[in-house]
Design a binder for these strands. Structure first.
Lengths: 165, 165
DNA sequence: TATTGTTATACTCTATAACTATA
DNA sequence: TATAGTTATAGAGTATAACAATA
């Protein structure tokens, strides 16, 4: 730290701000580029949108199914949107609504057998695309990136806790 | 590398794929969370959307203005959308269309004085938000993140070149 | 003919709010 | 009353394609 040149505080703050801003723009452009590629390939190769794929992914992780309200929370969108997406997927026989014993207002949404099989195929491609799109980074660099993002997400580092222990 | 356990190649590939997938999901969630926050604050505090802010940012970097076609390329959306955004911003007197001498089909879109002043205010807030939202990372960690993203973006590392030299 | 920009249209995702049925 | 889900509606962003004016 002593090796840093002494800068006027305001100038230095300004320079740091610009560095954060450049970092953010790069983070955004990298992420958007990958996301757009995935979105486009999902549409071209499977005729599905990212939100629909994500909803199926939620269901795949919960074989017992999820209620509309749970889906709404997990996908972080309001209920009306979930209704629309589930309607579409149900129209294609990829998911189904099942009565929920004990509460006739709600029901469980599950993948159908066809939905599970379709999702498996899509998920394999999706995973391969992600591997491909992240391949400029070595395994070690991916670990580093993951760790930095953990810090960004949680506001502190798992390593810090380890260091403190 | 020799310290790694010998794993069946397929199992290992699978594990790596899962690591890349988890990394991607984390990258996506971190970026989306920050972007959503910025989008929401821009709307609440300045009544502007991110695409409109971005278009103004493009113009701010080019005081001589940009044609619709140039804006379309830089914002990576098709021309009709640029027309709509410019129409809205022009309606609020934040940008203006100026005749382009020598080609009566095209024109230069510029920030107005009011647009420049409004953008300056918004950009200051925007930068402060970015600094705030990235603040869980130390300056050094931000540098590391930036470097990893450079590798991801360009497909190779400036450091690799240094290492190779 | 090719290019610049506009218009018309359609689709997806999103949110809000009023509504129905059930708890 | 409160909750689960639906419906209706509106607004933003996006793309495509036909179009007008100009090069």
């Amino acid at each position: 730290m002593n090796s840093e040149p002494m800068l006027d505080l305001e100038v230095r703050a300004h320079a740091e701000h610009h560095a954060s801003l450049r970092l953010w723009l790069r983070l955004l452009s990298c992420t958007t580029r990958i996301e757009d590629t995935i979105r486009q390939r999902l549409r071209e190769q499977f005729g599905i949108t990212l939100p629909r794929f994500d909803l199926m992914a939620q269901l795949e992780r919960q074989p017992e199914g999820l209620t509309m309200g749970e889906l709404s929370k997990r996908m972080m969108v309001t209920g009306g949107n979930i209704t629309a997406i589930v309607d579409q997927l149900e129209g294609e026989a990829l998911v189904q609504r099942q009565a929920l014993p004990g509460d006739r207002r709600a029901y469980r949404v599950c993948l159908t057998a066809a939905g599970r099989s379709a999702f498996d195929r899509m998920a394999r491609s999706h995973e391969a695309w992600v591997v491909e799109l992240l391949s400029p980074l070595s395994e070690r660099q991916q670990q580093q990136l993951h760790q930095l993002l953990s810090i960004l997400k949680n506001g502190n580092s798992p390593l810090k806790s380890q260091e403190a222990s």
